[in-house]
């Protein structure tokens, strides 16, 4: 059967990975044309070819709940369960932002809290524009870093309910992850340093007088 989860797939959060997508949406995806025509018999490799073609992300839209191709491919990934290395490659690739988003959403759904922070937080530095399809079916502008922020802080992204992720400070207290260093911190420190330097200069110059 085309819609059955791969036999050797591991259970995720104690259940069939495909069930991470709600039943209503899942059924709509199985019924959709994109699923039937483009997602049939995809493997982890051929899925990449389809993902390259994505040019917007989003969940479902329209009055009759149409799934976006992005959503269909997400379900496909849950169905065939690609290796973790493949997902990490999805996330690390620089060229295709929607593959990156697809990989991050998949990782957020399936991986442990530690991995979520480890792999997703570096993407805060990616400020490229993305197009998101909203519920009414129109495209709106977003950014990769906003998408990542939603993944780590919202309950729902692309109409999928996200599993709980442990709070950052708990993982920090147990020493499992290090405090986050933002790319902007360096900039701020530089600013402070230059300010301090100029203060020092001012101090010495006034002292000399």
């Amino acid at each position: 059967m085309a819609n059955v989860t791969a036999k050797d797939a591991m259970q995720i959060h104690g259940r069939n990975p495909q069930h991470l997508v709600e039943k209503i949406i899942r059924t709509r995806i199985y019924d959709s044309r994109y699923w039937k025509e483009d997602c049939f018999a995809l493997t982890a490799e051929s899925l990449i070819d389809k993902a390259v073609e994505l040019n917007y992300c989003g969940g479902i839209y329209g009055g009759n709940i149409k799934p976006t191709p992005f959503m269909c491919l997400l379900l496909k990934m849950l169905q065939i369960q690609p290796d973790k290395e493949i997902i990490v490659e999805f996330i690390k690739n620089e060229d295709y932002k929607y593959i990156r988003l697809l990989g991050s959403l998949y990782l957020r759904l399936t991986a442990s809290s530690q991995d979520c922070y480890k792999y997703l937080e570096p993407l805060y530095d990616d400020f490229r524009c993305i197009r998101v399809k909203n519920r009414s079916g129109s495209l709106v502008r977003g950014h990769v870093d906003e998408f990542i922020d939603d993944l780590l802080h919202e309950d729902r992204v692309c109409d999928v309910i996200l599993p709980r992720v442990q709070k950052r400070y708990i993982l920090e207290e147990t020493g499992e992850i290090q405090p986050r260093v933002s790319a902007i911190d360096d900039l701020l420190e530089d600013d402070e340093d230059t300010e301090k330097e100029s203060d020092d200069e001012l101090a010495t110059s006034t002292r000399d007088q």
Partner: peptide, 25 residues
Amino acid sequence: SNDEDEISDGDGDETEEYEKWKVRE
């Protein structure tokens, strides 16, 4: 809907986007 091309998928002005990102960050 045919609005897929209404907003471009491009990245606009790099420095401008960078400034906006700074604010968000």
